[in-house]
Design a protein around this nucleic acid. Structure first.
Lengths: 208, 208
DNA sequence: CCCGCTGCTTGACGCCCGTCAAGCATTGCT
DNA sequence: AGCAATGCTTGACGGGCGTCAAGCAGCGGG
């Protein structure tokens, strides 16, 4: 089984690697299509059309549509976990962290709007379909932890304690971000500055 | 045209009334089905199955699927605008208003979960599909005004000014409610008490 | 009493979906 | 060089969808 074909002595290019690579490649194509059309209107044929493969290949790498989408959201998660870790590690003052965090939120809202609306789409789907819940809840918890690292570092730099639990803070920021994203997508020019202002106003209020 | 059949002298039971009545009746059936299955999985046949009519009747009262769904969301809006007006008018102290508001949020989250997840579903659909945006934005503005009436009254009763604009407050509460709804739907027993606690904690912070 | 209109059902259409089997092309091993 | 396994394409399937046309039932007006 698993006839490894290591070219030299190193562990290079096993068939399993190729396989996983194609799965990820298809998952990326799928994420792009899903981000463009949304879950309801995305078909496997459309995903394949937006890739360099034909529609039948999906069933070579995935058992069914659900396994593909699951693989997609896991890939998405692996990308977004570390999105704010850089500015958390680098910022030296609370004010700097807050400014950079707000800027990053605005940037990701504008430049990665499709993937964010997809996230909200899938999270809402999980309210209807049980199948999605494990992955959605895991990603939601991961995002919450990410936000948690930002705000606890912010509090430490400010030398003052947080007066709210991280889960609630995440809910507040999520509401602000979702409102901003919708405004941005419907063409509201003030969406970016509104988001920045709201985040900049909100975080200082959370300190004791 | 429009041969009115007023029975007595009053304006009673014109054919147009019957027509609108059926439209609303179908819209209610549609809302129930949509709340159960979500937008992506709801078909016109399924809607008709959950009503007392057959699948063809939809096209007698609505031009197409989109017109039906539009009629649905408008009916939904007309129901929810006044949801909190009672407690706004009746509450005599800020504390009473806050407690009743939090209770009402919890109650509506638990007893009307399907229609709320449908609202989040449609709002997310509007991020992808332009057709939905006018109605979604109008409902969102209506909900925001409703929340605005609650919090401004709350501030007046407390004798202290609001230190945040209504749009931002709506975003915060929406984030808290959406998180609560998801938790409730996945079976989290603490969802209700969490929502109540978060709202009870949040509103006092918004006063100067 | 019968006719015609309104309200609803039934059935059919073309389309697109997820899925899968069969076959072709390419690669890599012996 | 020849063969077998791998990787991908093609085409077909059953089914569900939105839509719509034709037809039936029941009621009200002449």
């Amino acid at each position: 089984m698993t006839a490894a074909v290591e070219t030299a002595r190193g562990t290079r290019r096993t068939p399993a690697d190729k396989y996983d690579e194609r799965r990820t490649q298809l998952a990326i194509s799928a994420l792009e299509t899903l981000g463009e059309l949304g879950y309801a209107r995305t078909s496997l044929r459309e995903i394949a059309n937006n890739s360099e493969f034909s529609h039948g290949v999906v069933h070579y790498y995935f058992a069914d549509k659900f396994e593909l989408i699951t693989h997609c959201v896991r890939h998405y998660k692996s990308q977004c976990v570390t999105r704010y870790d850089g500015l958390v590690a680098e910022s030296r003052t609370a004010e700097e962290l807050l400014a950079r965090f707000a800027d990053k939120l605005v940037e990701t809202m504008t430049t990665e709007a499709p993937v964010h609306r997809l996230w909200y789409d899938l999270r809402t789907q999980s309210m209807f379909e049980e199948q999605f819940r494990p992955d959605v809840l895991l990603i939601d918890a991961t995002l919450q932890e990410m936000i948690g690292r930002v705000v606890t570092t912010y509090a430490e730099l400010a030398g003052r304690p947080l007066t709210m639990d991280v889960a609630t803070i995440y809910a507040l920021l999520d509401g602000v971000f979702e409102k901003g994203l919708l405004a941005h997508l419907v063409g509201d020019r003030g969406a970016s500055s509104d988001l920045r202002a709201r985040v900049s106003d909100l975080l200082p209020r959370l300190l004791g």
